[in-house]
Simulated scan of single mutants.
Amino acid sequence: MIILEFRYKAAGDSSILMELDVGIDKDINKLIIHLSNIIEEKTSEGFGEVIIGYRSLLVQYNPLTMSYYQAVEKLKQLKFAENNKSHEKRRHIEIPVLYGGEVGPDLESVAIHNNLSPKEVISIHSEAHYLVYFLGFTPGYPFMGGMSKRIATPRLENPRISIPPGSVGIANNQTGIYPVESPGGWRLIGQTPLRLYNQQAKQPFLLRAGDSVTFKEIQIDEFNEIKKQVELGDYIPVIKIDNNNNIYTDSQKGGISYL
């Protein structure tokens, strides 16, 4: 049985930071997600959005209806069940990636740093199964665990001012995908033609905390074809539910399946 002992800290005048003294762990991640869902169901009691971290929750509350100390006491009294059915079904999303070249300018440096060939880096990166621990930094940016130490590489000493959306990067022992154009210091090894963030969609984020992700190497022709379909709103990524292998798609035009 996992016992969660949180530290509570004030974060501004309407938020509470709940922290655990643990490392990055997939089982803790399940519980963190479960806790966030329970708290967000307590809107009638004055709680609002919950932001997830590796080992933390940032909980918003209404300071007009309760004080910080009252909010903390309410959080302490919540019963958090470990065996929750809401996470028995985990989504699995396959992300197509064009590796190297102009879209992956740091693939070579990652290979050199780890005494590997670029092909070996691609193989190792695309063979792993990743867990989305949380979204942050920019809208829809997935922080994922599960990358092999064999391709771990430090961040760039001088971050880039602008990184194109869809860029796949490596920083230390993590991999991630830039959903929107932004500055960043992760080493870029490729790019996906998928949109991770669509502000106009009913569900704007392709990925969610708790999702399982794999990367699939594609070539330039397939990259351009998928990108064209995405821009037209015709591309429908396949999202699988791991526990029973059901496949769900969304035929809605103008957006991506964010089930």
Rank of each mutant, 00 (worst) to 15 (best):
N114K: 01
Y69N: 15
K119L: 10
N37H: 12
P118D: 04
K76C: 10
E94V: 06
Y141L: 10
I32T: 11
G101N: 14
A71P: 13
L20K: 14
L57Y: 02
I151Q: 05
E94D: 04
G53N: 07
V59G: 12
I16C: 11
P96D: 03
S109G: 05
K119A: 13
E108P: 00
G136V: 04
V59D: 07
N115H: 09
M147C: 15
Y130C: 01
M66Q: 13
D27P: 03
I39A: 12
L107G: 04
N114A: 00
I151D: 06
T65E: 13
K85I: 12
E40H: 04
Y54D: 07
L107R: 04
L31V: 13
I28L: 14
E94H: 06
M144F: 02
L31D: 10
Y141T: 05
I24L: 11
N62R: 08
Q77E: 12
M18E: 10
M147S: 05
S44N: 14
V103N: 04
L58F: 02
S123G: 00
H92S: 10
Q70M: 15
V132F: 01
Y141H: 09
A128G: 14
N84D: 14
E40A: 01
N115R: 13
E102Q: 09
I33Y: 02
M66I: 10
M66F: 11
I16N: 05
S86A: 14
E41T: 06
G23V: 05
S117W: 03
N84E: 13
L20Y: 11
G104P: 05
V97Q: 07
S67F: 06
E41K: 11
